[in-house]
Write a protein that binds this DNA or RNA. Structure first.
Lengths: 359, 359
DNA sequence: CATGCCACTGAATCTGTAC
DNA sequence: GGTACAGATTCAGTGGCAT
């Protein structure tokens, strides 16, 4: 197979351009599609025919239908090019997010979360007839119910005062120096803040991953991808936007040190160590008594790396679960050994010592 | 025309019961329909306790298509009975809100706002696989594009420290004494907080208005309507819920004085700021070296908002604590960055800058 | 009576690998 | 594909009870 092009901007309709890409070749799709539901003038059907102005119910239905057709067309291609364990992100407001979400579900994506971008500095409602429109909605979905997207849980938690990252993200609009301008006018009407893409990409991708943005605009996705050591493929119809995006991304520095980009490793991915290895290594002798943190439960270490309690024997996990009458148990943190006279520590310490040994 | 019955609970299917009501007879419809959750297995907390999920029959649907058909049927009736300038409110989560929103638009309602109920105390994600599901979404819509729903802009603004009420509402879950229980068990799995209905009804209805709730459950809508001097029509299939609702509403006092109907103040807690936001905002680039006040300890900023020192990585707090061999550490005051050549300042400055951003 | 500790709980599409 | 099993994983708040 030819090498997948990346770190490029393709000029054209996103549906046509995606069709040229092979199956399952990108790790993340981020899409900020046009809203256009009210501004019927520039809404076109997938076949490029125009939708007429809207005044009555039939036309309204017709325009929703055209938007839905367009949505399903590009989402289908996005699904095809997305890897099995890839992530789809779409963003929208109440004008279009319900159409997007319904299409995402109907096509068989599996929603992981919806996320609200709460704007710390939204535009006020000048007429006083509605609530200040202070948020937009993102949908994070897997390619299918079986997909297992990357999720850097521990990174997010560490970055969030050591509590889980929630589904509401408070971030400012894209303003100031970050906002691209030309002759004093903004280049793109809905440029997204880099902080938003930063969080999305650190959460659901890894360095080296390929991020596809079918509505590239002025290239926020590309700029953040480059800064975070990800690769990008942008698709955009408008030449003005492409030029602005290209200049912008060229000015971004790639990170010097790969280590600064790596997410905190997930304990689940650490090499597997069996309790038998602890016994083999002589860290615990057969016959040693282990106890739970409070000393309520006890069991003896057996030479084969299993545990024996009064009426039961088996793995450190099984025995712990049975004694507690629980469906499961992490024996590594449940069982403690006497590290010094009267001082107990979880046997997970011993596992860590084995993992730290040079291999 | 016969006088419209009100302050009653109708026992039956909401579609059938609504069909018995005349056209354009209610001012507000508030609907909290089944979410169509698809829970496969039991879920346990890390302490092995079981999560009491929503497994009721009424929440089960065969398919998206069946759910959509049901949705369109009850929404059509709701639209018919709604007055020309009435308000529709629906609430849901990512499982169903996109279906609801699409149906609302297709039927010709006109969305005024979507509103997010940000939960101050949501249930965490116990497996570390997703973002904490910390919000639900409401849709506020007019009967048609020509509808002009009641909107008490000035009371909301007065209740919100004289700034416009926004589309994100931070409110706690329904817990404590407000939560209806019977023999220690919750009567209804998804009872909504009264504060939520309070804000909805003070915003988009007037005293004396009729509020229809086709999924009445244990009657939060009725209780708040009565307290606020509105009338209500509840529809509910389940006799147990109806009985609980009736008792509950009977215990609510109607207001003696119209002047007492002022809206509740909007609680606004300062949002938590994580170190990740500092990195996302571009205030510190990945690879930047931080040091403690005396320069003894150093660590590098990572792109994901964690810190990396020689042998350890984690949050600013964890890394600071480990390096000092202390049980805990306030990373915001411990770590310093080079603000100017040779001049260091605590990173707490950067947090303050984020907090100072307009909200 | 104040304080601290422990138990309990909430609309949840909540694992990964080997055999 | 199904089964078995190792083992990773929680925040804000309420309420009861002991000290």
């Amino acid at each position: 197979m030819a090498k997948l092009p990346s770190d490029i901007i393709l000029n054209g309709c996103c549906i046509e351009e995606m069709k040229k890409l092979p199956d399952e070749c990108v790790d993340v799709v981020f899409a900020d599609p046009p809203y256009n539901l009210q501004l019927k003038d520039d809404l076109t059907r997938p076949d490029q025919s125009r939708v007429d102005g809207v005044t009555n119910d039939w036309d309204q239905f017709e325009s929703f239908r055209a938007y839905d057709e367009f949505t399903r067309a590009w989402l289908s291609e996005a699904q095809r090019v997305l890897k099995k364990n890839g992530s789809l992100w779409v963003i929208g407001s109440y004008h279009n997010i319900f159409r997007l979400g319904t299409a995402v579900q109907d096509l068989g994506f599996w929603i992981q979360n919806d996320v609200v971008w709460v704007k710390s500095n939204p535009m006020p409602n000048f007429r006083g007839t509605r609530f200040t429109n202070a948020h937009e909605t993102l949908i994070w979905a897997a390619k299918s119910p079986k997909g297992r997207p990357t999720f850097n849980y521990h990174s997010l938690k560490a970055a969030n005062e050591d509590v889980q990252m929630r589904s509401d993200w408070t971030l400012p609009l894209c303003t100031g120096a970050e906002r691209l301008k030309k002759l004093g006018a903004k280049v793109h009407p809905t440029q997204k803040p880099e902080a938003l893409l930063h969080r999305i990409l650190t959460a659901t991708s890894e360095p080296g991953d390929v991020v596809l943005d079918p509505f590239f605009g002025t290239g926020t996705t590309g700029a953040v991808a480059k800064r975070l050591g990800r690769r990008y493929i942008g698709i955009e119809r408008d030449g003005t936007y492409i030029q602005a995006a290209a200049e912008r991304i060229a000015a971004v520095n790639r990170p010097k040190n790969e280590k600064d980009l790596a997410p905190i490793p997930a304990p689940r991915k650490a090499p597997r160590v069996g309790f038998g290895q602890v016994v083999e290594a002589g860290m615990l002798r057969p016959g040693t008594t282990l106890r739970c943190a409070k000393g309520k439960h006890r069991a003896r270490v057996k030479a084969d790396g299993s545990l024996a309690a009064e009426l039961i024997e088996g793995s450190i996990h099984k025995v712990g679960a049975t004694l507690q009458n629980a469906p499961s148990c992490n024996g590594w943190t449940f069982w403690h050994y006497e590290r010094a006279k009267g001082s107990y520590a979880p046997i997970d310490e011993l596992r860590q010592a084995i993992r730290a040994r040079p291999s």
